[in-house]
Design a protein around this nucleic acid. Structure first.
Lengths: 244, 244
DNA sequence: GAGTGGTCTAGACCACCAA
DNA sequence: TGGTGGTCTAGACCACTCA
């Protein structure tokens, strides 16, 4: 259908289909964990060939927005399932052992964004935000001091209880409590020296080297929805990164 | 053609084609930067449809083994071109400015692998290796202390001159001098305190936090060919990581 | 205009899964 | 057995590049 021939900004059909499917996801037509219509159904719906729908879904699948299961169907990705619950956590033990994750609440306060956060989250500097601080514990040892900021508008009602219920994965909580699904994140890593407050939380001397991870998470349409600063003790752990 | 019907280990045709193309790359039939035969040509050669060849090449392209250029052809990826010369360098200035990279040679010695390196590079502990140390300078300021180890067998003749000629990118030098093309790398990051020797090289006090990047690089067929430990001053720089 | 990659189609058949 | 994703084909046509 309408192919926009000769247009200066040519856009392939499968890409347009991808946008349509994404809009249905944003609109909540298919909820996380649910199956979306089969390829042939979608092909009929959008009046294109199955191959074109397929290519659109391929793209969504490589972005982890959707998950294909042969013989079963295609499902809306979710952070709820155990295996991908910690999808964005790249920190692993030097030994490679699997670890028990625990979540210690520190604080939850409300304030104004300010210039820096406003720019990152694409909101006004005067907009309300919610700040959460917590301590993540691996196998009983505190390893990450997290400082999390989200826009209050989209996370009305976020409080201590909800953070504690999340049992480590904020993202699955965002999903079930606020309908916000994170799709992608960007991280900036540095080595820093531990400040007094964080050093105390983690049980370290001031000046101890920590891995600083500043993360911005995005929901559908590349909309930034969370800022986060994690300070990690990496004496017995490392951050994995794959380069291609 | 021969489709291996009912075989217990079913392998799609395009995957087999991909292996055949990869073998031609390893064998040196098409050299880095060169164009490989067109899709129709390859289709005739392997007696499959163009679509099948296309899917094989798609896969190689997403792995950055090959680069497609519409209207021109498909080319063997290379580290020589300026835009991808520093493909594996994730460190950028806080300001986002582009920086001039410089390469200061420290040492180049020959020794035995030892247990740790042997396991990583999949060679014998008694095998010869070449160790290179250098200092990378960004816009005149020393920022990375690199310790690089490669198996001597594949890099016979690697010396001070070759390192200095490389002008920062070892990988393009490996390619032109030794025919070794790196395709993929894994990195493990930690925050560490600067030791005396490195602190002096970088002009820091002992104990200053540094980002430690341990990297293993792989050539075709996931064969590890280089181990590297970079110690980076990240006071004004950060390491970028994308999570999907 | 000739050659290359890129899109789109329509249809056949295969592998996997659940009932 | 029927439905789903996955593969493969053959052919048409489009967009891009370069001589």
């Amino acid at each position: 259908m309408d192919k926009q021939l000769n247009s200066p900004s040519y856009r392939p059909l499968y890409d347009q289909i991808k946008v349509l499917i994404t809009q249905s996801l944003i609109g909540g037509e298919w909820r996380p964990g649910e199956m979306i219509p089969s390829e042939v159904e979608l092909a009929m719906r959008y009046k294109v060939s199955q191959g074109t729908v397929r290519k659109a879904i391929d793209s969504l699948a490589t972005e982890n927005i959707v998950i294909r299961r042969q013989g079963k169907g295609t499902f809306v990705a979710t952070h709820k399932e155990d295996d991908i619950k910690l999808r964005f956590l790249r920190l692993t033990a030097e030994t490679g052992n699997k670890e028990l994750l625990n979540n210690a609440f520190i604080s939850c306060t409300k304030s104004k964004a300010g210039a820096y956060i406003a720019k990152i989250l694409e909101i006004k500097a005067s907009a309300s935000i919610i700040e959460v601080k917590r301590l993540l514990t691996f196998s009983g040892r505190p390893l990450i001091h997290d400082h999390i900021i989200v826009p209050a508008a989209a996370f009305k009602g976020l409080n201590k209880d909800k953070v504690e219920e999340s049992s480590g994965s904020m993202y699955s909580m965002y999903e079930s409590q606020f309908g916000v699904r994170m799709v992608r994140a960007e991280e900036r890593l540095k080595a820093v020296a531990a400040q007094a407050d964080v050093a105390q939380s983690l049980g370290l001397k001031v000046g101890h080297p920590l891995l600083s991870i500043e993360r911005v998470s995005f929901t559908y349409g590349d909309k930034p929805m969370e800022w986060r600063l994690g300070l990690c003790l990496t004496d017995d752990h490392h951050y994995m990164s794959e380069l291609e």
